[in-house]
Design a protein around this nucleic acid. Structure first.
Lengths: 113, 113
DNA sequence: ATCATACTTAGTCATGTTGCTAACTATAGG
DNA sequence: CCTATAGTTAGCAACATGACTAAGTATGAT
């Protein structure tokens, strides 16, 4: 299932940037305005805006504008597909672990040669 | 903790590509040679090699060369940091869920206006 | 020794990403 | 009305990414 999943790609890509992860962590505390989010990053507003767009397109945050202020908040369930994929992988990987174990060990040793 | 984590960035970035995810899934079944991995992707060898390098640098796979054949295998524990980060986030996010819930709902509605 | 196999390396190309500045729009406050 | 605030848009530069071809190296088979 989910052979080629654009949603996962969007999510993983959004999470691959440290600035975006820090924004998410910040938003986990409380919703915030764009300026509030930009401040601790040391980046300019347009740059942060772009990061917010990426996060929003991945579904990780939702934003709304009230007057001239845009407020951003996390969408907690957005991480579900990631967690699901991870669980699926772990299931498969662990099922094969027995017969892979020796193999991997051998490879690891060889890799460090 | 892990304010700015290059390891997480490497992992998430490696997982953001569907081809790389399909390679991982394929490797979950059994170790495989580079050619075996390239075949189902429809991509050329050098392209697949690059993907393998990304996966290896992220620590997701280990490879070794025996004669002229390079064999690749998954490194199951490589996903641990991802899982840990996800769990951390969920913990924070869910802790704030009560007071965020109304807020998010409002934002979601507004977003779809 | 010769030849096919299995990568590997080098170099190109188009596109995407991340940062910036400058200039613009829209709203709140005095 | 005027001005500061909050965001937005446009456009640029530097570098990264993902694909390719062409040519090289190393190894197994005959």
């Amino acid at each position: 299932m989910t052979k080629y999943d654009p949603e996962l790609s969007l999510l993983f890509h959004a999470l691959a940037d440290p600035t975006r992860r820090s924004i998410l962590t910040r938003l986990a505390e409380t919703p915030a305005r764009v300026t509030d989010l930009a401040d601790p990053t040391g980046l300019r507003l347009p740059t942060v805006m772009r990061h917010l767009t990426v996060l929003e397109e991945a579904g990780l945050i939702a934003t709304s504008k009230d007057g001239r202020v845009r407020t951003c908040a996390i969408v907690p369930e957005a991480l579900d597909p990631v967690r699901t994929w991870l669980d699926e992988q772990r299931a498969i990987w662990e099922a094969r672990l027995d017969r892979l174990d020796d193999y991997v060990m051998k490879l690891m040793k060889e890799r460090d040669k």
